[in-house]
Amino acid sequence: MTIPPSSSAVPVGSGILMTLEQATQAIRSGACLCLAADEALLRQLPRGNWIAGSIPYFMGQDGGETTREKLFVSELPALDATPTLRWYGEHNLERIALDAPAHGLSVLIIPAFSGVHSLYARQAPSYEDMYLKPLVGWIAGVHLDDLGRTAPVVANGQTLEFRSDQALALHLPLPERVYPRIDIVNLFQPGSGDTIRFPSTGFSAREAYVNGQLRDFAQYLGERAIDTRLPLVADYSGALVNVSFKGVDAAHGQVDFYAPVFDDVEYRLAQPVPDAARAFGQGLPADARAAGWSCNCILNYLHANLQGQRTGPLTGPMTFGEIAYQLLNQTLVYVSLESV
């Protein structure tokens, strides 16, 4: 059984695109909110119980949309509790799951290209209490036209602080009778081709063990004419986890990724997905349809041409990375509340 949100500030579901005026009203109602929008819009919001990150790409109620004029707003299930918002830098990021409530939900937003982004990507799986406490979130970004000129930001609605070098978490206690179930929808299946392992963990690789043989990885990708819009996929005890390609520099023999490859994980290249929008809609499990929060990946938005298309009932920002405990790529993440 799913549990509806505690107020009527935002329609039931994983959120909607709103005007600035509507978002301001939602904030003033006292609701606990997670917002996504262009930085200029976020800076016009009043104080309240909200956490936000910059991004102009969305799956809205009318389909995929790129806009600097609207905000995506989803309501978090405060259920009479007051959330705690806390900043995390490189010096204390390992506290994130320790600080999370014993029973609750934490929403973490991290600015892309920051030191905390890189650190979280590499180390989050080893943080104390990681996986024991529900933790979701996303990587804030910018319009692709602004890359290199504008830094992504994260905002604390309680203090109206904006930062581009720190992550922000909203820790929300929940009654013990409520369990926030976190799950993912990953359209990508590992192909039946070569197995790939990497000699070291990192956001880039020069070499890889392809079927056990050490190869120049950029050269390997070129020889096979690999479509790098498709990610590497690893099987984590039944959860399929992607690592997306960022760039291949054959001249310098370097391949860059949007998440780190780990040296203790086996990867395969993903199979193509013919119709991603339809696949998202059809691939949703029953509990996802009642999700109260969701996010997806900008690479899915771009590569699957999701502008103007719907991905089933789930809505949310299309981000520079998704968090379901650890960092993910090209994955839809959702949270649904259950009674236990």
Binding site: P125, S126, M130, Y131, L132, P134, R181, I182, D183, I184, Y236, S237, G238, A239, F262, D264, V265, A324, Y325, Q326
Partner: peptide
């Protein structure tokens, strides 16, 4: 396994044990 956190945690612990 139906629970995502268990899938991820089990993978992490198994690789650490190696």
């Amino acid at each position: 396994i139906k629970v995502l956190s268990l899938k991820l945690m089990l993978t992490r612990v198994r690789s650490q044990l190696e």
